[in-house]
Design a protein around this nucleic acid. Structure first.
Lengths: 121, 121
DNA sequence: TAAATATACATAAGATTCTTAAGTAAACAA
DNA sequence: TTGTTTACTTAAGAATCTTATGTATATTTA
């Protein structure tokens, strides 16, 4: 019998809700085509293990973005196993710009609330 | 018959999900006791009308935080109308510190993902 | 080499947090 | 006096996520 201890530092925060689409779009825009599992590992690496994208969130999100026309998917067989590579479309690039603008606004608004003294103009 | 046109610039972004508790705690810690409607107006003011806290989100959230022991509530009659003033407890102040730390981590992680070139150390 | 872990995807059930909507009630402005 | 603002409540539904389960192959470890 094996017992798995949950690692400390793992994000249980609700703040990431709503940010997954933005994260995926930005990674694909930056790196070119990626497959799902690769995205989870890249995010884990970039955040030093702090943020672990769950498959239950990731895959439905990718499917939804493909249905929306933001991504295309291509299945490739590597080592006798199927990978689904996602690539960003022109509509996806537009959406990336919008999402990043929204993120900037969100960050600015949170600053205004959390640190009102630094909010000039 | 009256038709209400939805103002542009209002936040339809999902990014604010999960940030409401943090916002309320910080405002109460900063300003002392406040009532619900006052909180919505303060946030609207601080974000230049960008973020409008909905009552349907605010009041259940205040009740939950009170039940958790983070806030106390005192009803006061002003102009023949009841206001419920919420004040932060010591446990609420602890939670504020935790929530602000989580926010900092979230912001740092988003920076690492969105702008990996700026992530040194 | 058998068992465990890692890779790689899918999806249903349930939790959480929010929006929308409807209701109550009083004060104030047109 | 009609509409708007102030002030709070709560139910129904939407969106996003976690947990759990399933499938399947490859690689590592005991």
């Amino acid at each position: 019998m094996y017992i798995y201890i949950r690692t400390l530092g793992m994000s249980t925060s609700q703040l990431y809700r709503g940010s997954l689409t933005t994260i995926i779009l930005k990674l694909l825009e930056e790196n070119g085509e990626m497959y799902g599992y690769e995205i989870t590992q890249r995010v884990k690496e970039l955040t030093q293990g702090d943020l672990e994208i769950k498959e239950g969130a990731l895959y439905p999100s990718l499917h939804k973005m493909e249905a929306a026309g933001y991504l295309t998917v291509t299945a490739k067989k590597v080592d006798n196993r199927v990978r689904k590579y996602y690539d960003i479309t022109p509509a996806g690039k537009e959406e990336t710009v919008n999402r990043l603008a929204e993120l900037d606004e969100f960050l600015a608004n949170m600053q205004r609330i959390i640190n009102p003294k630094l909010s000039f103009e």
